[in-house]
Design a protein around this nucleic acid. Structure first.
Lengths: 235, 235
DNA sequence: AAGTGGTCTAGACCACGTG
DNA sequence: ACGTGGTCTAGACCACTTG
């Protein structure tokens, strides 16, 4: 077996959800039913469901059952996700139905020079990544990285999330109608010295994700925290 | 036992990490050692470590061990600094007339009970905050906090951002047309034990901010764990 | 050779919702 | 009374790293 059973099982279910074969609110089989169905022990099923839960695809209600979540949220609970390979993020759903196409070329910076803090004539590595699932486009991204900074490790990532009109290339590949908005994530990878090491513009079909979820640690003991319940905001 | 063993165990370790008793890179006990230490089976330890992993507090390296991770800080830099009071974030823009209106009342949890993990009859503090600038609405938020958790300090904040149809109250105050979308931020403040301490739903006029910008710290490209850990670094 | 995390088996009891 | 998800026990084998 190339991959763990619980990953395969989760992927199988995830695919049904994303392709719409299982619509939101649908109740899944019980743990014991699944265990029998997939011929594994209960622990494995629980691992699989835990994976689906972490991806926001299902939710469980104690003593009732497991249900398909309303809409998959794009979860960015941890910055490590940004370095996850696309294959890693989607790979467990693939019966080779997820396809990643990558083009790498070296071009001059042109219009991206200003953001990158270089001159338009400088050479950058331009990577175009296209992801399809069952032939339908999931995402497309353009990444630009100056060759002079190929060895510079990024330390910070800034993400700007918005519904925007896509570039012509993104629109045509995603197959959106003219004037349609898409969810975009503009990323700026910064080095220690606040220099922009790399930029990346990602587009998603607008209806694929209902929200972007972030999780952050709070500074405890800081008076600055808005704490409406108490009179002076002190924790 | 009030809470599951794996939660207690994870909490115990999490506390040591957050208080600095365990510094980044420190190697934790092995699964089997922990199982013996806490007098539970291996599965429970694995559940506990899985919880810590999902919180980004530790990271595991196969065939090597479990290590305290660098806690990546996720900081939202706009459109509003969540860590400052509303007055603080707008107050020093002296040339504008920013007004903050706050209503505080105690109500029963009702529909918000489920998210907060309480019963609908439980009492919550409901705070409505309205911000105007030069008389124009900037934002409106509803905050709900169970009275039983007024003293519980939140340690984590999860935010889901999306364009959504606002509640009737939000729509009427923001003055949006029926059917219009607004930018929403749904916040869940979590305590150490992963309990929801407070929720907050914020709406902004859709055209006020073009994007939400997040800034987060990345691990550097190497293995994030300082390796090898010091010989006596175990717990 | 010993130990690690990753995966898995084959059971079990509990509190609670549903019929 | 039965089924549910949640939790837990007490083992096991694997691929691999370390000493």
């Amino acid at each position: 077996m190339p991959q763990p059973a619980y990953v395969s099982i989760a992927g199988e279910i995830a695919k049904k959800i994303r392709t719409g074969k299982l619509s939101p609110g649908t109740q899944l089989h019980s743990y014991s039913e699944m265990a029998e169905l997939y011929e594994v022990s209960g622990v494995v099923i629980r691992q699989a469901v835990a994976l689906l839960l972490s991806q926001g695809l299902v939710r469980t209600i104690p003593r009732k059952g497991t249900f398909v979540a309303e809409r998959p949220d794009l979860v960015r609970v941890s910055p490590e996700r940004q370095f996850e390979s696309v294959e890693g993020s989607f790979g467990n759903e693939s019966d080779r139905h997820v396809h990643v196409d990558r083009e790498v070329r070296r071009v001059s910076a042109g219009a991206h020079a200003e953001v990158l803090g270089i001159t338009p004539e400088d050479t950058v590595v331009h990577v175009i990544t296209k992801v399809t699932e069952d032939g339908r486009p999931i995402s497309i991204s353009d990444t630009y990285q100056p060759v002079a900074r190929l060895e510079t490790a990024p330390l910070f990532l800034e993400e700007a999330i918005a519904d925007r009109h896509p570039t012509a290339d993104h629109a045509s590949w995603l197959g959106t109608a003219a004037g349609d908005l898409v969810k975009t994530v503009h990323q700026r990878f910064l080095s220690d010295a606040e220099d922009v090491v790399m930029i990346s513009n990602v587009s998603y079909p607008r209806d694929r994700y209902s929200a972007f979820v972030f999780r952050m640690k709070l500074d405890d003991g800081r008076e600055a925290v808005t704490w409406p319940a108490t009179s002076n905001g002190k924790l």
